[in-house]
Nucleic acid binder design. Sequence first.
DNA 1: CTTTTCACAGTCGCGCGGATGGGA
DNA 2: TCCCATCCGCGCGACTGTGAAAAG
Length: 586
Amino acid sequence: MLGDEGDSGAYSAAKDEEKRASPAADGDESAAGNRYPEQHGMGSERYYIPNTVSKQNPEASFFPYTPGGAVYSPPGAARYPSSLHLSTVLPPAGYSPSAHFSPSYQHGQNLGCLYPPYTGSGSALSNVTLGGGAGPGLRAQVYLCNRPLWLKFHRHQTEMIITKQGRRMFPFLSFNIAGLNVASHYNVFVEVVLADPNHWRFQGGKWVTCGKADNSSQGNKVYIHPESPNTGAHWMRQEISFSKLKLTNNKGTNHNTSQMIVLQSLHKYQPRLHIVEVSEDGVEDLNSDVKTQCFTFPETQFIAVTAYQNTDITQLKIDHNPFAKGFRDNYDSMYTAPESDRLTPSPNDSPRAHQIVPGTRYTMQPLFQDQFVNNLPQNRFYNCERAVPQTNGLLSAPTEDGVSQRWFVASVQQGGSGGVSAGSKLDLTPYEGEYSGSLLPYGIKSLSMQTTHSLGYYPDSPFTAVSAGWGSRAAYQRKMPPSLPWSPRPSPAAGFSEELGKAKAQTDEEVHSGEALISSWTEGQASALSPNKPESYSVTCKRQRLSLNGPSADIKCEDLSSSGSYSKEAPPTKGMASYYSFYANP
DNA sequence: CTTTTCACAGTCGCGCGGATGGGA
DNA sequence: TCCCATCCGCGCGACTGTGAAAAG
């Protein structure tokens, strides 16, 4: 199927209109690949358009943001005008970005960018109609659920492995959506586009541009969520995870194309989320361009590689990806080994350049800093990350940190359920933000709902996440009570406006009370992290992980058991219980 | 020299089938 | 004794990063 995409650039609108039905609706994989064919052939031409702050659509997203990262408007992109407004919005008073939900940078329905053949006029702004809140299915709000994790990778320039067979993304894309019409049907899909016109290479410990990007990009660039089409209620009810999305460099692949996105190595890409309102049978409304929406999260930018270049990224993957658990046994060295031992020269601002100070290792002092996004065992906290400037030569540190540090107090979004304390406990979960997002604003929903695309390794539910990630066996997981009584969650937007003032008032108090809560919670969590191997936390063996100077040298480790703040006697279920009770009783 | 491919070992989820226990 | 549900262990497959070899 991909083989015939070479001429996709010449794909006509008429041809496209012949098959307007959603591939997800008819299950036709080839259709999935061709569903938005213009995206394939144009891959290299349709660079990610910079987000320019626009006041045209002040309610489309949540806070003003100008991506500081590399975004590019190609010289010859007349058909994708750089004047496209990725509408951003002034925040409600007192609103700050959540640490867990990243407001998206909505493309203001700039459908000209996404569906040129559909729009007729092709005007980028022709669909920025957004006729008020009454419009059915419009003005969706999208939140990046695992944003803390994305940010963590983004600081080091995220890399994604691509293989012939296809490699899953990690972190994967996971969203919560609000503002859809509960009765309308939508297709939800992710598109990956070039983020800039450059070819990149890793040199001297950092990514540098190296010539122009290959413009002959072919292959599928779209991954349609397997549950598409579905109702707005369905999409809003649960976290929408794209964990099964695979990245490949195999243009000739002719199977699993619906699950694979074809990329080119050493190119920088930007994933984008699309929500398209369709009829009940999955067919798009030919006259409803306004029913398509696009969302971009700059922190999800990544460079496709066939092998990891930056060991910081490698270590982050090992630390956070459950599939890479087998490589975690010696990761302690990453936080104690001298910087000179690192395989990859890193900027001196790397968080790991800062040694752990035993005295502070267990303190909760940095609770509202980086350990919010740190799922490492408590005895491996390094508390300097956010305290030092993050500049790796690629990222716009001020912007990046400016965003990440304005971490929102969760209570703004979820009413009385916990503010910072809620956010804290979520970020301390083993999978960080992987599912934290599902907890934060819609906690009851997330606790109760088992998504139909249950992820196994990447659970949607905090329950499954806890059981799967903390050593419980599948049988145990399956026997979990399926759900608490679920009640439809309020839309985030409503929650924002209604709870904003109250949450703001609660913030300070929760900052303080949350610390104690977190402290008690992490106690249980730390024990749950390694229910079967408590010694791994009582004795940390610091082995050299990455060294150019021969075999790994085992470094005798200090016994940390005496200073640990966790209770290694606590069984995993206790940890989970504490997790639940903590969450349920803020 | 850089980049890609491949085999490998490790972890984990899942499905299968046998063993076990309770109720009819 | 039979039936059913549950538990448990095993094996398979999916998935990960590693490191060497191959390719460009």
